[in-house]
Nucleic acid binder design. Structure first.
Lengths: 371, 371
DNA sequence: AAGGTCGACTAAACCGATATAGTGCAGAAA
DNA sequence: TTTCTGCACTATATCGGTTTAGTCGACCTT
């Protein structure tokens, strides 16, 4: 018996299919497909009719069906290989992936991310994704020389974009920032403030970009731009950075550094804390400089001088490179991001006249010295 | 002309399909499907033969094809609605999503995330994902009372898991942490140290968990557990937190707080910096407590006392709830996570004898007072 | 008027899986 | 011996799209 109440089951249980649209518009499935994809084969009149019908019932093509027949998923994969502990603290990654997926979304694609803790796992994920045809392309981060991931990708013919310099991209499309130039700026800043003994807390030594950064410093040292260099590499973790900082503070007096460059913001933060605990003040006794900028660098006291690059924008460039590579897999896209700029805040200042005495009580704030 | 060199095109161009496996094992497609999915219909002998053939050619079922015929994608969606600026700095989200996707991966599912900047966008993403059948289920964060997302999800009948208390989950499956209990601990800690005037820098006021936390404090105030409470709500941003901190410092002397509870670690960091800039030292003049623990709380000086919950594990619970909900959509799963524990570090200490003078020069470090 | 071309559309094949209906064949029951 | 039951397997329909091969009528040509 029909009642005067609204049907309780009025909710749309199953999303409408192309067949529903076809029925509603009184045409065939094929016509709907042509109309909605802008292909030839339907008159403008019926196209409008079909579009209207589709909108009325809220039709959206089923991804699986579309992927199956088109043999592309419009999904791009990105694997993050990071130690568990640091996970999610690196602002870099959040910004980057937001930038990538924003650009991809604008082109009807989406980003699939996955976190692993070893290279072997990462390779396995790549293989699985490829065999399952889960992604159309990959974004490869932190390349190393003779990277196994790059070999794999080339072997199976997967489209990919490498975040790294041309030299390590292995003839794959790539997007990179000129780390050398950035490091130059950091160095110039310290040198112009009179610093002659410089410390560098680097990242993972195998990473190509870590090597590039270090090379800039050693080259400048060789060229006599400053007196001494102490480089310590780490695994990008906070604990390693703190330990590295303590090592730098423990150097013999003659080599004691007056300025430290950290390869990431998290490491710079950890370093700042290690300095404070050792009773060393920044920038009075040691100047601190971060190679990455983010909210974090503004949350310390004093706020950190940092090399600022728009990571979100960088992600957008990566997304764009992916789209271009998919459009023409033969063409190797090479994009260099805008030069980073050094944002001078309060953690860097003039070099103190003498070396820093560890755990010293006497502050010599604002000491001036001509370079 | 055939040369004696290895074929350059030896790379596997297209992943093998079920048909390839069938051909290799000398059986039909159906038999392969049965064998590989553990269904009845093949003898153990042929099953072994088929499994061997599949492994030999490295067969993995095409996701799109499987999704289409099974009408499930084995993908779970999670939309993050955060302001651009904070993006990627909240360690909470990275840990959470890693936990979720780890648990999902163990069950053959994967997590798809997307970042938006408004509720409207978030709803639109949900609608699109559902209509495109891109995800099997959703994870909904930061519920508010009468949440539009929850209405939508129930309306179209999408399986979902809410991260939030039963009261706001709207009869959907949910995983929650007892914020009330955590806040109790924070409060007890401060009260036991002799603090009588307490400040609270809360998160987004519309969020249900923000309300719960605040309610605990007002209830305790009404019960006479301490003398005065100053609550400021924010949008979880660092700038809002800094501003809120300054407001608390500007209170008239009689109401001036001696302990501040921050609803997130990023806010606590921003607050610490605001205190330092105002010349207020922690914990001597003001004790600082963070409701979230992460690497960040250990990167400040002094390290922050914080309410520690294993966010990765929390994510695992969420993943498990999703799997359970998919297995039986009728059954509402309700999971309460383990109680958080208060990790006492150096940012909290005994309450000073008198109110804090703003920008005061005289430090009264280590002042003792009996509660 | 017969044949040819073109536009607009339909019918049907196809993508690669899963799931159901059907087919032999062996052994058990009548 | 005949019929029935069950097992192991094959053939085929199906998911919801895209795409190719046809179909049909209108208009053009000569």
């Amino acid at each position: 018996m029909v009642r005067g109440v609204r049907s309780p089951g009025s909710a749309e249980r199953r999303p409408p299919t192309i067949t529903d649209v076809a029925a509603r518009a009184g045409v065939s499935k094929g016509a709907v497909s042509f109309a909605l994809n802008g292909s030839a084969g339907v008159s403008e009149e019926t196209r409008a009719k079909i579009v209207a019908a589709a909108e009325e019932i809220g039709f959206r093509p089923n991804r699986a069906a579309r992927s199956l027949s088109r043999a592309r998923t419009e999904v791009i994969g990105l694997v993050l290989n990071r130690p568990m502990r640091t996970l999610g603290v690196e602002p870099f990654f959040g910004q980057l992936s937001a930038g990538i997926s924003t650009e991809l979304a604008a082109n009807g694609h989406s980003l699939q991310t996955f976190t692993v803790h070893s290279v072997a796992d990462e390779l396995e994920v790549y293989r699985r994704w490829w065999h399952e045809q889960r992604v159309d392309a990959l974004v490869i981060m932190d390349p190393v020389p003779r990277d196994r991931r790059i070999s794999l990708v080339r072997e199976v013919g997967m489209p990919a974009v490498v975040i790294g310099a041309p030299s390590v991209a292995g003839r794959l499309s790539h997007v990179w920032a000129d780390d050398a130039h950035g490091m130059q700026q950091c160095l110039e800043h310290l040198v112009s403030l009179g610093h002659r003994r410089i410390g560098h807390v680097g990242g993972t030594p195998s990473y190509a970009h870590t090597r590039r950064r270090t090379a800039v410093l050693t080259d400048a040292l060789d060229a006599g731009r400053f007196a001494s260099l102490a480089t310590v590499t780490t695994d990008f973790s906070d604990t390693a950075a703190a330990e590295a900082t303590r090592e730098l503070l423990d150097l013999p007096v003659g080599d004691r550094v007056t300025g430290i460059i950290y390869d990431s913001d998290v490491m710079a933060l950890a370093g700042m804390r290690a300095l404070q605990e050792a009773g060393v003040s920044a920038p009075e006794q040691v100047s601190v400089l971060s190679f990455d900028d983010s909210l974090l660098t503004r949350l310390t006291h004093p706020p950190l001088t940092a090399l600022s690059r728009d990571t979100f924008d960088f992600g957008v460039l990566v997304g764009r490179a992916v789209i271009a590579t998919l459009a023409d897999p033969e063409h190797v896209v090479s994009v260099e991001a805008a030069q980073p700029t050094l944002v001078v805040r309060d953690s860097t200042g003039p070099a103190p006249r003498r070396g820093v005495a560890r755990r010293s009580a006497h502050r010599r704030s604002g000491a001036q010295e001509t370079p």
